[in-house]
Amino acid sequence: MTNIIDVKNISYSYGKTEALKNISCKIEAGDFVGLVGPNGGGKTTFAKILLGLLPFDYGNITIADQEITTFNNFQKIGYLPQKHTGINPIFPACVEEVVLLGLLSNKKYQKKIKGADWQKVEDILENLGIKNLKGKMLSELSGGQQQKVLLARALISNPKILILDEPSTALDPNSREQFFTILKDLNNQKKTTIILITHDTGYIGKYANKLLYIDRKLVFFGKIKDFCPSGEVESCFEKSDKHIIWHQHN
């Protein structure tokens, strides 16, 4: 397997507060990585660094054989942000307009939208079973529906890497199961590399093949079975809080 993301000794500080120190990991194409850690442990910061939203202080990152500082294959990365609750309630954006924004990464100036682009929007909405929401205003939808729309936006460019920041928080148990099944199918069928930030360790045990555990420093990176040979991932996390495992799998 080839490394699609190669992170070497990344450090990042918010002012004088060190948020991440010497994080290294090599994520292979097709990995499903559960990114975990305590609140304030640097999970979202790490994801934002991978997305090019935060400039790191030290280290080096390569994504799809391209240095992150010069990275311009934006269509290769899909992103589902955490703050879907921050959607402006008066913004008059309907579902198809929002999903279309995911295609802008494929376009240079001037970003002309063609009939084929709208067809892609239709297709992805149909694949996710939300075609009926096409003309609805995003802010009028339920949390679960909004999450699916934003997932459609992340997937429409057919990304090689999908980064999701706590996507299941607004979902009821049924929608959550459905959501993770969609992710697993993507991972299995399209070999999409998935990096999933979550506190839901049960789902990590069920769906992810690797674990990236960050608490400002790297606590663990490697296969789930190396972190938790018993397969009882939730109980392994309870233990690891008391006996932090220092292990790096490259």
């Binding site: 997305l51 939203l53 934006f74 990365i77 992103y79 942000p81 402006n88 924004l101 802008l104 936006r153």
Partner: peptide, 10 residues
């Protein structure tokens, strides 16, 4: 609509 997301699309 979403400045942070817009940045991730280049």
């Amino acid at each position: 609509f979403d400045e942070e997301y817009a940045k991730t699309t280049g």
